[in-house]
Structures are given as structure tokens and as C-alpha cells.
Amino acid sequence: MMKNSSKLLFLFTLITGTLMTISANSWLGAWMGLEINLLSFIPLMNNMNNLKSSEASLKYFLTQAMASSILLFAVILFMMKSNMIFQNEININNYYKMIILSSLLLKSGTAPFHFWFPEVMEGLTWNNCLILMTWQKFAPLMLMYYLMIYKMIIFIIMITVSVGSLGGLNQTSLRKIFAFSSINHLGWMLSGMLINEYTWMIYFLFYSFISMNIIFILNILKIYHFNQLFSMFMSNKYLKILTSLNILSLGGLPPFLGFIPKWMIIQLLSIENQMMLILWIMLMTLITLFFYLRLCFSALMLNYPENNWILYNMMNNFNLKFYLILSFFSTMGLPIISIIYYMF
């Protein structure tokens, strides 16, 4: 088992690599930051209590190494462009952008380069899943914003939201369900990139907060599969209700917090006259609500005999108190932000 001091060191290196990438002045510097980020996350993935962690680490390393090789190859060719003669320089530049963008899509797990992402998620602990779903996507998404190829991005958005919606329908593992959910949310973030830089960042912050809220309680209760949710529903009715509402918030239902960034992107895309894109991502997101509702249907619609003893006392457990505070903002986010908006 890795010591806490070593974990903190690797986490610090992980954050440093991402900051190096987003603040780099050249593509070579951005590549170096991505490599530091990769090499610092691999040791965090190893867990002696999880037999699949070594397999997940190897899959993650091979995939990211291949993406980094493609990125470095395209950057070197792009830097050598001045010493070569091309008949159509504009088209050549677009080819380089497509290669670099494809490598970044592979790094972030965006469809159609998503095949490694659910398999790696299945072998990780919940804490590492949260890092992979949120922080590890920030640097590639930031670099993608610098390489916007409009037609290609729209095509990628439609594929991503479709794969994220349809891929999670037949899953029983919660980690794979949240992996395909993350792919679907990546489509919404890419849609925000069509508008401006701040839109997708706001969506990313909201998504990270809601995901942290859900994974926080799943990590405490050590729940990894669909059938394990029944034990949680039978143990405490407060956990049953709060977890179900947080899952619905992740799906983007009003009046929960997850509806705000989707609402914002839909309004801004309508200003850009992207009605077909709006219709497609909304229809695909409705499919994601199906397996979100499947997770909380048994909690909201069926009665379970509650145990005489309470496994988790919310009045005395600090972790569950903290979860109660986070859940309040997650479930009541839209009314709170609306009140603040009209007050100021």
C-alpha cells in the first residue's frame, strides 16, 4: 500500500503537470506537461487491494503513450513545416490540426476513441475514478479549444453523446455506468467549446462538483455494482433519498444543479442557430436519464424494510454531515442560483 506522503507527492506532481500544460507557450511544452501528468497518475492507480488495478494501469499507460507519440509526431512535423514546400499550406495545417486533435481526443476518452476508458475505470478505486473523470480531462480539453475545427468538432459531439448514452444502457457496474456518463458529458463540454472558452469551463466545474458528491458516498459505502445499491437503500432512508437526487442532478433534471450548465449551453447554441445539434444532444441525453432513473427507481418507488439499527448515523458521522451539505447544494442549486441572480 502506498504511503500517504507518496500519494501527496504524486498528487502534487499530477497538478503540476496539468498546470504546465495549460500555461505552456509551445506545443512541446504542453506535451511535456501531459507526460508529467501521465507518469504521476500511474503510481496512484496501483492498489494492492484491487487485483484489476495493474491491468488498468497497463491499459491506461499504453493508450496514453500512444496518444502522446501521435501528438509529438504531429508537433514535430508541424515545426518542420517551414523547411518544406507545400502547394496548399492551409490544407496541410488543417491536417496537422486533425492529427493533434485526434491524439487529444484519445487522451480524454472522447468517442470514437473511448474504448479504453470504461475498461480502465472498471479497475480503479472510486477516488482514482474521480480523478480520471474530472482532472485528467482538463488539460486535453484546454488544448482542444486551441485547435477548433468546426465541422470535425460537431461530428465528434454527435458521436460522443450517442456513445455515452447508448453504451451505459446494458451495464451493471457503476464504474462503467459513470464512465459512459462521463463520455456523454464530454459531448456537452465540446458543445460549449463552440461558443466560448468560459462556457465549457463552467460546465466542467458543475460536472466535477456533482460527480465528486456522488462518488464521495459510493466510496464511503464501497458500492461498485448495481445490486449493491439495495443494501444501501435498506440501511438508511436519508442516504437513499439524497443519493437518488444527486444521480438525477447528474442527469440534468430541473430544479437540480446539473440542469444549469445544460440550460446555459442550450440557450447559447440557439443563439448560434445550432438547432439540429441541440435536438440531437437533448435526445441522446434523455437516453442517459433512463439508466440514471434505473439506478434510483428502486429507491424512490419501492418500499424496503428498514433495519432496526442504523449503519450510518448522519448526526454523528462527519463524512455524512459533509455529504448532506454537498447534497443540499447539488439538489437545490437552481433555486439558490436563481435567488442570487435576482438579488444582485
Rank of each mutant, 00 (worst) to 15 (best):
M284I: 02
P255C: 08
W200K: 05
S298I: 12
A30V: 01
T16H: 07
G251L: 00
G109E: 03
T134I: 01
G17P: 05
M133F: 09
L302W: 10
N196Y: 07
P305S: 10
I36M: 12
L311M: 14
L106K: 13
I202C: 05
N319L: 14
F290D: 02
F259Y: 07
L101S: 05
M2C: 06
N184D: 14
L245D: 05
N313M: 08
L166G: 09
L147F: 15
I278S: 04
M45V: 08
Q64F: 05
H225L: 06
I183N: 12
F73W: 08
S6W: 12
I131N: 02
E272S: 01
S5Y: 11
L286Y: 01
S108L: 04
I90V: 09
W309V: 08
F113Q: 05
T16D: 03
L248N: 03
Q87I: 04
L311G: 14
M133R: 00
F230C: 08
L124M: 07
M332I: 15
S270Y: 03
M84L: 12
L169N: 06
L141A: 11
I214K: 04
Q228H: 04
A179D: 12
A30E: 01
G29Q: 14
L132I: 07
P261K: 11
K107E: 04
L324K: 15
T16K: 10
A111C: 02
G33R: 08
N227G: 05
L62T: 09
I85C: 00
N170Y: 13
S68Y: 08
L302P: 01
M264W: 05
L248Q: 05
A24F: 10
E55A: 06
L9V: 14
K237G: 03
F178T: 00
F291M: 00
F322S: 15
S69L: 10
F86H: 00
M275H: 01
L269A: 00
F328Y: 15
L28T: 14
T160P: 10
F259A: 13
F233N: 00
L72M: 14
L286F: 07
L77F: 06
I76H: 06
N49W: 02
L239N: 13
I340M: 15
I310F: 06
K107T: 08
N316I: 04
I337C: 13
Q64Y: 06
L221N: 13
K237C: 03
Y95M: 02
H225T: 12
N317F: 09
F86S: 01
I15R: 11
A30P: 07
F10S: 10
L320Q: 08
F138W: 11
M32W: 14
Y145F: 15
M189Y: 11
N308A: 07
F328N: 13
L105R: 09
F204R: 09
K52M: 12
T63P: 00
Q64T: 09
I76T: 11
L218M: 11
L194F: 12
F206K: 04
I271P: 00
N219S: 15
N88C: 00
M284L: 10
G33N: 10
L269V: 02
G168A: 02
